[in-house]
Simulated scan of single mutants.
Amino acid sequence: MRGYLSSTYLIALGSNRRHCLYGRPRQIVRAAMEELAALGTVIARSPIIATAPMGAAQRRFANAAAVLDSEYDPPALLAALKRMERQFGRRPGRRWGDRVLDLDIVLWSGGNWEGRGLTIPHPEFRGRAFVLGPSRAIAPGWRDPISNLSLAHLNARLTSPRTLLR
């Protein structure tokens, strides 16, 4: 449902399958970033990075993040993102399998959200460099409402080399 107040969202984008119209995963992610403008105002777009496959996926991913101001509430935005995935050719499949487009709400300016089929912050984003890297590039100071750590801090925790204690 569209409301009167605007909210800000951090959206993660990913692709690892070609599309007959859009081309390779990098071009799909770029096109999806442009399509997000139909849902509000895109404030920032991260660089697109290449990442290793995860889970059942077989191919490398193109990943990115975008900051979106939108009048949609979280469930309405999720429904719109799922429609966009289908418009790009995503079909139901196994978890973490290959996909033309994956769009996830990672953070929301309203803090936490718990509803049917949607949890914000995204429950697994803190352990995913392919989400934190692009997100940190465009919103380093945005704080996780659960840990109160910034995206820059979460990314550093995840990616910094650790020394072994003896």
Rank of each mutant, 00 (worst) to 15 (best):
I120G: 01
L103P: 05
P145G: 00
Q58T: 12
V29M: 09
R136E: 06
D98R: 06
R86C: 13
A129M: 06
L151M: 00
I43Q: 10
N63F: 05
I49P: 06
E85A: 02
L149T: 00
E85P: 07
L68W: 03
I105P: 08
A32S: 14
E114T: 01
A62M: 10
A79H: 15
P53H: 13
R99N: 09
R45S: 12
I11N: 05
E114S: 03
R86F: 10
D104I: 04
D73G: 05
E35P: 03
T8A: 06
L164E: 12
V131R: 03
R60E: 14
L158Q: 06
R83P: 10
P161C: 09
L165F: 04
L118Q: 09
S70C: 10
A79C: 14
R94W: 08
S70Q: 10
G111F: 08
L78C: 14
L149N: 03
Y4L: 05
H153Q: 07
S6P: 08
R94C: 10
L77I: 12
T41M: 08
A62S: 15
G3Q: 13
L77F: 11
R86M: 12
T51W: 15
M33A: 09
A129C: 10
F88C: 04
A139S: 02
D102Q: 15
A79Q: 15
V131Q: 02
L158A: 08
T163S: 15
H122I: 02
T119G: 02
G110S: 04
L103G: 04
C20K: 15
A66D: 02
R94D: 09
N148R: 00
L13V: 13
L81V: 13
V131M: 03
V67E: 10
P47Q: 12
A52M: 12
V29H: 12
L13Q: 14
Q87A: 04
A37Q: 12
L10Y: 00
L36I: 10
W96F: 13
L118V: 11
W113I: 06
R26E: 13
N16S: 12
A64S: 08
P47G: 13
R83F: 10
R99F: 06
L39N: 07
S109V: 02
R24A: 15
R143N: 01
P140N: 11
G127K: 13
E35I: 04
G111T: 02
I146Q: 02
P140C: 09
A12N: 05
N148M: 04
P161A: 14
N63G: 07
S7T: 04
T51Y: 14
S6D: 03
R94P: 14
A137V: 00
